[in-house]
Each structure stands twice: as structure tokens, then as C-alpha cells.
Design a binder for these strands. Structure first.
Lengths: 223, 223, 223, 223
DNA sequence: GATGAATGAGTTTTCATTCAT
DNA sequence: AATGAATGAAAACTCATTCAT
């Protein structure tokens, strides 16, 4: 690939992430191309359709999350009895801070069963599992929470609520994280039942991805 | 308003809610009209543009949330030291169960400063405040959580995560609620600072809604 | 016809004239009905289609012109050698002043061959002919100008030029009339050839209306 | 701009002028595109909305008028005492003959204060002023008529009267011009007062365009 | 390889007209 | 007789996608 071609590709991805963030994943491809300073035909040469573009933006988002998860795991390995809990805090906070580069909640992003996304997701949950194992060992974290719970919590908390003043979003997220961290300590009165989504029963070996219904990915209008 | 007109109006709203839920708020108005068994022109007679329709669907969603909040407040007034916490549980669970009728997170719904939405939101937070007051009195709930925290939590938890298998959604939500409830008990180690969004400093009288930036309401594509 | 029905009919005509004046004869019938404070169905009861409404507004306009022509003829019969020229001035000025009630230049008004319009037009030219006969007798008016020339001049001068500041229109019309009156005096160096449109050769008896091509009545867009 | 693009642009303008002439400026854009043998989307690529198309057609019309004014100025510089009056005749006749290419009276054309239109209009009045100066010098033209009077006269006379047989239009216009020319000779008994629209008092320097009310641009229906 | 241009298909929106109350 | 409501048809406009330069 020629140097300028590679540069264009990255410009397109950056423009797409920004436009998707501002206007949603139904943002006109024309506008994305214009923002990237390339022609629409060039965009099409790189990404055969909108889905391909979304997917790539999504994958880059997963990579961002993975970076946060890895940073958090390092925190978990620090000294102190509550290091693992601080690691969870680091993870949740980090994901919220990366919000704009993220696509965990991206409609039209890589499907749940997309191979590359699956691999990345498993790497993320791998990091989170490591944190949780440490947390349980030193009694910093309740033992019925699993890595998927954490990943989903991160996704829910980082997703911007529409029709909400932007300055509320950060404060609200931070407060929610604080409550959540308190809820993660041992001594829970509301026990979580079962292994939770994506986690096999202990006695079973790892079971393959359960086949699931089509992803839900509605289209929103720009108000 | 004539009886048939009222009937049609409701039919349109029902169809719109269903279509918005399935395909997002950019769903073709044609299809909504067809689903409601009226002509597109009839839809336009009632709702001058898509925004008006969204707004009304949104308002109905707020009404649903209000109903849940009121039901929860009744639970809070039952006997027992943990009635308030059960009320919060009732509220969060109820909102998640009503998910499909809901529009808290509806793109293009009533703007944050929409008068009707504001009134309804205040009614909801009123109920939640009542619950929290009882909860603090009997020591069932930490004292730094406010009604907006609860409302935003309900919004975040009930919002379906895209690219996520539908059967995960309910389980995940239930598990998240459980952790959250444990986090709401007194004895918190992660204190919430400040009064939180929308809540004035105690020593101040009630201050009017702070003016906020334009609402964020992106458009998503259907994959 | 009931009294209220008659009142409604006139209200509709007034509203139509006003709307046609402001927005052109393609103004939405809905809006005309609203302005007249009647329902659209009532409008339809009185005027089966837009053409009928236009036609009636047009006929009323012709009646206005006829009133001006009659007033002018009375001026012509006053004393003084230039009374006929003052009569022409009266006619042209009067028509310009009535502009807003007029439809000489109304697209979609009564067609040129419409019976009622033809009768009214002939009455107008009758008055103007009387003025011109007097004018020629006392040498106040050149002898090659006919009543149709005057009627067409009135139509041209009174018609508002689009894209022209309203305050220019009156001044411009007044100045044009002044030049025109000077051009109407005897001693012309630019002679008018032939009898002019609508006027038979002197030796011929009155010939029936010559059949003409379809009327030209374009539709304009609202800017 | 690519060669084919330029060709299409001109085709669209030609089609638009023709359609506007036949059906008014509310003529369906679809039909204009079809007549120009391009797709409607191509039309929209060149002209973002109907107004832009009207404007350009209007500007081309002004250019046509300017060409006539320049040709007339050359006539004014010929020998003979009445050359300037013949120049005026040439101008008025020329404009009437170009009627179908004209847009002086085009609803929806460039607004009065449109920059390009203003420049062209000033160029036209510049030519006409030159003619009038010569005419006054050699006593061929009355001295109270100004270039705006001539331009407005041309606009009024060239504008086709609706509901009028087409064959009348040319004859009527020619006859009106003849009377007008006689009225333009010196020795006027009906003096024009004031400097007239658009012409500053002699003692004042040129004053900028007076700001005027919104242009009047009604919509007509096709009968 | 990059681009400006063209296009077809779909969606919103308007409005004249008819119908049921 | 008057009206609010419903509708079909037409028009404006947008956008993803392909083509020729």
C-alpha cells in the first residue's frame, strides 16, 4: 500500500469516528469523506460499504478498551489489599474517559460474533479475570462478580445518554462508578445467581460462543 | 377532538413506539403510518414532523417511568427496615422490565429542557426523593445518593446495549442492579462528592435549571 | 342562500384576493379557508375548484376597473379642452391605486374568452372609447390611439414588478403615466399602424372575437 | 469544472428558462431535469434548491438586457439629431423581442439586492444614462426622464400579460412603445417630479442602495 | 490510485379533494 | 349547512453507489 493511501485510510477512520460520535453511524458518507479531505470514491475504495467502515472503527474502539484493561491489570498487581478494587476503578474510569474513542456501544460496529471483535473481547475479559482473581484472593472483591459483568458495566456507564446535558454525563458516570465500587466489595446481601452471561458453569469446560439472535442495531434520526 | 381522530392518534403513537424500538427513531414514517393503518398524510396532520412524533413517544415514556416511580414509593412505605431499598429495587427492576415502552434514552425525544418532560422528570425525582428520605431515616440507604443518581442509573441500566445478544441483556441488567443495591447501603467507602447534577447545594435555595449545551442526539445506521 | 352562507362567500373572496395578492394564485386553499375563518370544506361548497375561485376574484377585479373607467368618463365630460386627457389620467391613476383589488394581470383569472369577462371588458372599452372620441374632437388626444391601447397600458402599468422594492412601484407608475400622457397628445411622430388588437378595420363591421391560442398562465414559486 | 459538467449545467439552465417561461417558476424540477436530459439529482448537484436555479436564470436574463442596452448605446452615438431617441427605441424594442430569454419580471429571480444582479443593473442604467445624456444635449429627449424610468418601462412593456392572446402582445407592446417615445420628446406638459427611484438628488453624492422591504414574489397556479 | 460527476431509489413533505360526523 | 378528519397523488430532496476522466 502506498504511503498516501495509508494516510488516507487513517484520515478516513478518524473522520468516521468523529462523525459517528457527533451524528451517529448513519452520518452521510459524503460528509465523512469531505471531513477526511478525500473524495467519496476514495472512501469506497478502502471500505466497500458503510458496514466495513463501522466495523473498523469498532475494532479500533475495542483496542482502546483493551489498552485500558491492560493498564488496569497492572494496577491490580500493585501492593496493598485494595489494589484490585483500585484496578477496577481504573478500568471503569479509564473507559469513561476514552468514551469518544470508544465503540462498545456503537450501532453497526463489529457484530458480537465477529472474529476479530471476539478475540479482542476475550483479551479484555482475560485481563479483567486476572484482576478479579487477585481481588477475590485478598478479599477486596465479592466472589460472584465476573469479568463480563465488569465489561458490561463499563459499556453501560460510558455510553452517553442522549437528551442529557453533556456536563451531567461525566459527573453522573463518576458517581455511578463510586456506588458500583462499593457494591463490588465482599459482604453482598444481593447475591448474583448463576455464572452470568458468557461464563460457563464451573464444572463445565469452556463452551463455545452460544449462538445468539441477530444483533439489535436501530437507526436514529438527527434531531 | 373526534373519537376516530383520537383513536388514530393513539394507533400512530403505538406504531411509532414499536418501530422506534425495532428500527430506531429514523424508521421511515411511511412504515409507521402503514403499521398504524393510517395514511402518511394523517400522520402528518397529527405530528407536523418527525420530531413532534418522537417527542410525544418520549413523553409517554416518561409517563411510564413515573408510574414505576410511584409504585416504588408505595413499596417504600411498607413495613420493615429495608422497605426503601426494596423500593429502589422495585424501581430499577420495573424500569428495566418496561424497557420496550421506554424512551429515557430516546434520540430525538423531548429535549432536556422541554417543559413537559421537565415537569415529568421532576415528578419522578420527587418520588425517588421520598424513597431516599425514608431510606436515610431508617438507615437502609447511604446518604450521599440522590434522586438524579437513581434516575440516571435506571436510564443507563435499561438501555439496550447494541451488538449484544438479547438474552444477555436481562441477566446483565439484573446482576448490575444487584451490585448497585449493595452499593447503595450505608457504610460507603467511595463517597460521592458534591450535590450531584440537578441538585442544589443544601445551603442554597432551589436554583433554576442550569442552562446547558445542546442535547447530543446522534443518528445510527441499520446494519 | 342563507345570510351566513352569503357572508362566508364574501369572506372567502376577500381572503382569496388578499392571499392571491401576497402569495400568488397558487396559494394553498387551506390557508385561504383559514384566513376566511371557514373550513376548507365550506370553501369547496362555494367554489368547486380553484379555477372557480380565481375566476370570481378576477370578475370582481374587472368590476373595479369598470368603476374606474366610468368615473373617468365623467371627468371627460367636464369643461375645458384637456378634460379628456385628464380623464385618461384619472383612469390610469385610478387603476394603479386599485392595484391590490385588481386582477387584470391575474394568472388563472377568467380566461380571455370568458363570457362575463368579455362583457365587462367591452363595457370598459366602451367607456374609454367615449373618452377618446371626446379627446379627438377637441384635439386633446392623438387619433391613432384606441381604447384597447389604454386598457392594456393600464394593465401593464398597474402590474407590480416582482423583485422590485414596493416603494419604487408607485413612483415608477406615476412617472410612467406622466410620460404616457405626453405621448398621447396630438402631433405624434411615431404613428401607430393599423387598428390595433381588438379593433376592426373601419370599413368592416364589428367582427366576432377572433379565436385565440390558449391563455398563458404560468405558475410561480414562492421564494 | 469538467467539460461534461459544464455542458450539463448549461443544458439545465436552458431547460429551466424554457420551462419557467411556459409554466412559471414553480414548474416541477423533475420536468426541467427531464427536459435537460439529466437526472434530478444532477440538477440538485448544480443548484442546491429551486431558488438557486431561478437566480441563475435571472442573472442570465439581466445579461441579455445588458447586451441590448449596449447595442442601444451604440445607436445613440450614430449621426443625426434623433439618434438618441432611436437608441431608446432600439432598447425597448430589443428587450421586447428578447422577452422569452428575459427575467426582469421573473418571480423568484435574483432579489433586488442580490449583488450580482445589482452590478448588472447598474451597468444597464449606465448605458441608458449615456444615451439620455446625449439625448438631452441634442434636444432629442426630455430632461426629466432618467435611466431607471427607461429600465422599468422596458420591464413593464416586455412582461407578458396573462389571459391575453399571444398575438396581441407584440402589437400592443409595439404601439405602447410608439406612444412612449412620443412622450419622451422635449416639451412635456406632464413634468416628472423629483429624481425618481434609485436616482439621488443632484446635489447629493451617490447614496448607497436604500434598504427596501422584502421582495414580492407570489406564486401562480397553472389554470 | 484518485477524483468529480452522474444516477436510481427511497423518504419526506405538501396539498387538493373527498368523506363521515 | 358546516366541519374536522382522512386520503392519494405529486413534488422536493437526500444519499449510497457506480462511472468516466
Amino acid at each position: 500500500m502506498r504511503a498516501d493511501a495509508r494516510r488516507n485510510q487513517q484520515r478516513i477512520l478518524d473522520a468516521a469516528r468523529a462523525m459517528f460520535g457527533e451524528y451517529g453511524t448513519a452520518a452521510p458518507l459524503d460528509d465523512i469523506a469531505r471531513r477526511a479531505n478525500v473524495s467519496i470514491a476514495t472512501l469506497y475504495r478502502r471500505f466497500p460499504d458503510r458496514a466495513a467502515l463501522c466495523r473498523q472503527v469498532g475494532v479500533e474502539g475495542y483496542e482502546t478498551v483493551l489498552a485500558e484493561a491492560r493498564a488496569a491489570r497492572e494496577v491490580a498487581e500493585e501492593d496493598g489489599p485494595d489494589a484490585p478494587l483500585r484496578a477496577v476503578e481504573r478500568f471503569l474510569t479509564g473507559v469513561v474517559e476514552q468514551r469518544s474513542r470508544l465503540v462498545l456501544p456503537l450501532f453497526g460496529g463489529p457484530g458480537f460474533h465477529d472474529e476479530e471483535a471476539t478475540v479482542l473481547r476475550h483479551r479484555v475479559t482475560g485481563c479483567l479475570d486476572a484482576i478479579l482473581v487477585l481481588g477475590r484472593e485478598c478479599g477486596a472483591v465479592r466472589d460472584d462478580v465476573n469479568s463480563t459483568d465488569l465489561l458490561m458495566a463499563a459499556a453501560m456507564i460510558s455510553r452517553p445518554l442522549p437528551n442529557t446535558p453533556p456536563e451531567w454525563l461525566d459527573t453522573t458516570a463518576r458517581r455511578h462508578i463510586a456506588v458500583h465500587l462499593d457494591g463490588l466489595r465482599p459482604g453482598a446481601t444481593h447475591r448474583l445467581l448463576g455464572p452470568g452471561p458468557g461464563h460457563p458453569e464451573p464444572e463445565h469446560a469452556f463452551s463455545p460462543e452460544t449462538p445468539t439472535a441477530a444483533e439489535h442495531a436501530p437507526t436514529e434520526h438527527r434531531p
